[in-house]
Nucleic acid binder design. Structure first.
Lengths: 236, 236
DNA sequence: GGGATGGTTCGGCCGATACCGAATCGATCA
DNA sequence: TGATCGATTCGGTATCGGCCGAACCATCCC
């Protein structure tokens, strides 16, 4: 087959608790140093170094030297998608719904966070709901579609994709979004190109900002207004 | 998080060579007995039994008792999609393109096979190419779309989805296909609802049939004609 | 019931690997 | 140039988990 050994190797890499922690930390698309990865994984730097080099040779993460630091990030969106998909399976009906104490930081994560390059959490799900509600977007389990009204809506906002405004494309000819199951909400939110573009735009316009360089994001007063008035969504 | 331990558990389950072999064997959507799984994995029945029970409690496979046999299948399409995605990462640029001797059975697999519930191999890729070529289908990395012409084409053939003919649906409102990277061709073929429907239809009409109860399928003379004349594709 | 077949449980062996301490390499800064 | 900090390499230990042999349970058939 497509080399079963390689398949097992990749899965096994994600199957170690320490490495899984590192990969999860990289899920937001940012690059982290080896020591940061060691810290999030709860292991010593030398152990982390070994893990990282294995993941790098397997093509899971890419390394970029910068002075005496080494920045690591997920090698490609495919890897992020793989991790998401494994999460979906792990969150499935078989998963033991452990009550699990929810700390304040976890609460922030549940409210809004980045998921590789797009938005997730209550914000992400509510955004998806609102866009679908108003007929700007349609989602199925297999893919998604921006409607003609959606094209106009995004164009009005000035959201660009691949350097082109949506307006310049044939409306029905492009699939730009992909549903992505949310682990905290267990509902779909918007990934794919449109998801990434919306997320980037929200950061750029100051609607949201990162909390302490984590995956969690806070909604700014401006964002609060925009999300309520323009997107007509209410978080609670 | 969405319980990191559960995530690692799932990945680790796929990360063992014997279990990976079993999962691969189940990828075509059929149900296999414990002994069959033991054989494909190259382990003794008692070892296989342990593997199976672990995968069952984790929600990767489901078990169905039938007399003194136990039939195992992938617990859900999500699991199949996870395996596919891991394959994609494993087939990535980092993968050692081992020349790997190709046996006759492997050759059949490369020509045409099922991939969970849809068609893959040269046939699957050629089919996707032809449908896109004639404007019946559009694919991107994030999803796919059946065009209006495609809707008419499938309706003419009589292919139904979810019990409804495609005709009865609004053309642009449904995304029914999902690209799925082919490990042998390294190109996309058609998964999702439309992929599953086409595959089932091809079996039903006798265009293709299974070879020795494996994933490999043979193209019948009828199928040969249909694929050439109706779908206008040439395999070689 | 007795035999055959599919499947599972138990116990012990053993190889793989995650982990850390200590030492080393490389780059930055005083 | 020495000091510092990030990162890696090496060696040794301990644990985890895959594997099989043997025994046991369940179902079907004669």
């Amino acid at each position: 087959m497509s080399n079963l050994a390689t398949f097992a190797e990749v899965a096994a890499l994600a199957g170690d608790l320490a490495r899984a922690g590192m990969l999860r930390a990289l899920m937001d698309g940012r690059a982290l140093t080896a020591s940061e990865l060691a810290r999030v994984a709860g292991v010593t730097p030398q152990t982390a170094s070994g893990h990282i080099s294995r993941m790098a040779t397997a093509g899971l993460v890419s390394v970029e030297k910068q002075g005496r630091h080494r920045y690591h990030r997920l090698a490609s969106p495919i890897v992020a998608q793989m991790l998401e998909t494994i999460m979906q399976v792990a969150s499935g009906p078989g998963a033991t719904r452990s009550p699990l104490v929810v700390g304040p930081r976890d609460a922030a994560l549940r409210l809004a966070r980045t998921c590789y390059d797009h938005l997730a959490g209550r914000l992400g799900v509510a955004l998806a709901d609102a866009l679908i509600e108003h007929g700007y977007l349609e989602l199925t389990s297999d893919g998604g579609l921006v409607t003609e009204e959606g094209v106009k809506f995004f164009a009005r906002l000035g959201i660009e994709i691949d350097g082109l405004t949506l307006r310049s494309r044939k409306p029905s000819a492009r699939i730009l979004c992909r549903p992505c199951l949310d682990w905290s909400e267990r509902r779909h939110h918007i990934a794919g190109k449109i998801g990434a573009a919306m997320c980037a735009y929200a950061f750029e316009k100051g609607w949201i900002r990162r909390i302490d360089e984590t995956r969690a994001v806070a909604i700014t007063p401006t964002g609060e207004r925009i999300f309520r008035e323009t997107f007509r969504l209410q978080l609670n």
